[in-house]
Design a protein around this nucleic acid. Structure first.
Lengths: 112, 112
DNA sequence: TTAATATGTAACTTGATGGTTGCGTATTGA
DNA sequence: TCAATACGCAACCATCAAGTTACATATTAA
């Protein structure tokens, strides 16, 4: 495989990994309202401590899925849709390859 | 949040997590040809040992992304596109929510 | 000014992950 | 029959991830 494709896979893998946790998925769901929310706001109602939620937010931030802005004493997080759109495109690519492969296999079988 | 939605999030999270590793992503890419491949075949050319590759395949299998069939002395793995299609739908849902939220925010701003 | 709020930082525990080596077993092909 | 191939299983190790508690700091509001 080309090294560009390898690098892409690493990038995608980190985004997948960031989404691979129920807590973080629910954080993403909460941030889907397009607004920015403080950590306390995002942690309220959770079983976890504020610090644990903060760690999850940092994971999402490192993957580029969210970003934070300081606002007074609170730091507000908001969604960055870019990486998620990239994932959608990547999964579409996989599905496409799969469909084409199945098509070829079907045609091959018919030709026998 | 409803408990059904919670269960969905756990299921999606495990699939995301399974894809959250470069080695496993490249395994998925190899299996996109619609064929089934033996472990040795999938491990050849890899830096990792066969046993390590096997572990990754089991992770993918537990997430429902691949399945294995015994064939003589080899066990062949093939892709199961279902979970990946589910992820696509889930990401589409997120993007849709995001777009709608932005639309509402824009309208709200214009109304001021 | 002072109490309450919001957050950051650090140390620590626990358990999962990713990898290895070593060895045993089944299957295949010459 | 016998060597080569393909695999499974178990033990082991190192590292990372997820969570906690404890405490320090900055901001706000009364």
């Amino acid at each position: 495989m080309r090294s560009a494709a390898l690098a892409k896979q690493h990038a995608y893998a980190s985004v997948f990994a960031a989404l691979g946790d129920p807590t973080r998925l629910s954080l993403v769901a909460k941030l889907c309202d397009g607004q920015s929310h403080s950590i306390s706001r995002l942690a309220e109602g959770s079983v976890l401590t504020r610090q644990a939620v903060t760690k999850h937010l940092r994971v999402l931030e490192n993957a580029g899925i969210v970003h934070s802005v300081q606002r007074g004493r609170e730091s507000r997080f908001a969604l960055d849709p870019g990486p998620i759109d990239d994932l959608r495109a990547y999964l579409d690519e996989i599905s496409e390859q799969w469909d084409h492969a199945l098509g070829r296999l079907k045609k091959f079988a018919e030709d026998q």
